[in-house]
């Protein structure tokens, strides 16, 4: 993780992008959640917003991985002003749409969760690329 420093009791915000690369493996997505929580917390999000971003990043990873088990998820977390942006791409895997079981509308559930929890999000599953992104504003920013 880059761009973080703790100096005594003063916790500095993250000004550099934080990058995480994990194999597409279901039990490693929690690392994305942990990173999301850390970045959101450093960006001054309150407890509820941190929880929201954790879940939103989980859903983004699940959408981008789409049930596959090959390749790596590359995540970039960026705290910009009073928002956190996250970009998730799948590298090193052939695109095979529709792998994720969707028997009970799980994909639609993911979209509903993202719609509710973040300000903007998008997914680009065209061609050879699988990419998703989201942006969540801090609705209770502290003093600058």
């Amino acid at each position: 993780m880059s761009g973080t420093e703790q100096d005594g009791s003063e916790l500095r915000t993250i000004s550099e992008p934080v990058e995480l690369s994990i194999p597409v493996q279901s039990d490693l997505i929690l690392l994305a959640r942990l990173t999301a929580a850390t970045v959101a917390s450093r960006a001054g999000f309150d407890v509820e917003e941190v929880d929201d971003l954790r879940l939103a990043v989980d859903e983004l990873c699940v959408l981008v991985a789409d049930g596959g088990s090959v390749g790596r998820l590359q995540l970039t977390f960026l705290a910009t002003g009073n928002a956190v942006e996250v970009i998730c791409t799948l590298d090193g895997a052939e695109v095979q749409d529709g792998q994720r079981p969707d028997e009970y509308g799980e994909r639609e559930l993911s979209i509903r969760i993202l719609d509710a929890l973040v300000d903007e999000h998008g997914e680009d599953f065209e061609g050879d690329q699988r990419r998703g992104w989201l942006r969540k504003r801090n609705v209770h920013p502290g003093p600058a």
Partner: peptide, 16 residues
């Protein structure tokens, strides 16, 4: 402590 769409899908399947 945490639940996502995948687990919700399992609960929907259980309900059915």
């Amino acid at each position: 402590t945490f639940i996502d769409s995948t687990a919700l899908g399992v609960l929907i399947g259980t309900q059915e």
